[in-house]
């Protein structure tokens, strides 16, 4: 069931509410993201940033609201919890359009770097082994790790693991890539090598990218738009120039001040 989309919005979240027991994590959240837009999500810890990515990755459900991804409805739940349910096939179709890179890498420890990257293309996308391996080599090239093709995750540095994780997600050719604080577990130097990869990637592809980050300088360079959120609500959003140089809200100013002082 395709849904009429205005312009070329690839992600639409409308009035999304998400609760964990008594804790409301997202409150009537509205986010629209255009196709091929690069968006950075910033905000204090616990404000619901990861939850947004996890909802879009279909790892988490919502309590009410509407989520549409690339013209297909993922959720449409009214406040009284009624609403049209979405078929399993539709969920898998949507899931295939989205890729995610996690803070803790989550590589498969029992597989070589090559198999980490080719396993899903071969067994999910049904590519031939040759095709999948050839493509894996290209992605490893892109993240600068051709020489680690036969290594196991435990033999890699954190930065290398994260670059493999990026290649692994790319190999599924998702239209949308989600990055959840992918450099937070890394030393500054290792973080820099990962961010460089990401910057190249953002420049080379017209993929839609949504990233959660605490690296304000990086967000400034990388993103077309910054969304600042707190306690499950958007406080302010706009171009990096607007958010970093001319924030309108006092809360944005104080948040940026503390974050920039800390780094």
């Amino acid at each position: 069931m395709a849904i009429e989309t205005q312009s070329n919005r690839i992600i639409q979240m409308q009035k999304v509410c998400k609760r964990y027991g008594a804790l409301t994590v997202l409150q009537n959240l509205d986010i629209d993201i255009e196709s091929s837009e690069k968006v950075a999500l910033i905000g204090p810890s616990g404000s619901g940033k990861s939850t947004i990515l996890r909802i879009l990755m279909t790892l988490e459900s919502i309590d009410s609201g509407r989520v549409v991804i690339d013209g297909e409805s993922l959720y449409d739940i009214h406040e009284d919890s009624t609403g049209s349910s979405v078929s399993k096939q539709q969920v898998s179709r949507i899931r295939a359009k989205v890729g995610m890179v996690f803070q803790s890498f989550n590589l498969f420890p029992h597989m070589s770097v090559l198999r980490n990257i080719t396993e899903a293309p071969i067994h999910v996308l049904k590519l031939s082994r040759e095709e999948a391996e050839q493509q894996a080599v290209e992605f490893l090239d892109l993240v600068g790790l051709q020489d680690k093709i036969n290594a196991y995750p435990a033999q890699l540095s954190g930065g290398q693991k994260q670059r493999v994780a990026i290649a692994r997600a790319l190999a599924m050719q998702p239209k949308i890539m989600l990055f959840d604080e992918i450099t937070s577990a890394l030393d500054p130097e290792l973080a820099a090598e990962v961010l460089l990869v990401l910057k190249n990637l953002a420049r080379k592809t017209d993929r839609t990218m949504l990233m959660v980050t605490h690296q304000m300088h990086f967000a400034q360079e990388f993103a077309d738009r910054i969304i600042f959120m707190e306690q499950g609500k958007i406080v302010e959003q706009g171009s990096p120039e607007k958010i970093f140089n001319h924030p309108q809200k006092e809360r944005t100013r104080s948040f940026l001040k503390t974050v920039l002082e800390a780094t």
Binding site: L59, F102, N106, F108, E119, A120, V124
Partner: peptide, 16 residues
Amino acid sequence: REQYEAAQALSFSRQQ
């Protein structure tokens, strides 16, 4: 649990 999530993000079926 993260291993299940990584697998799900790559569209592996439950059985896979």
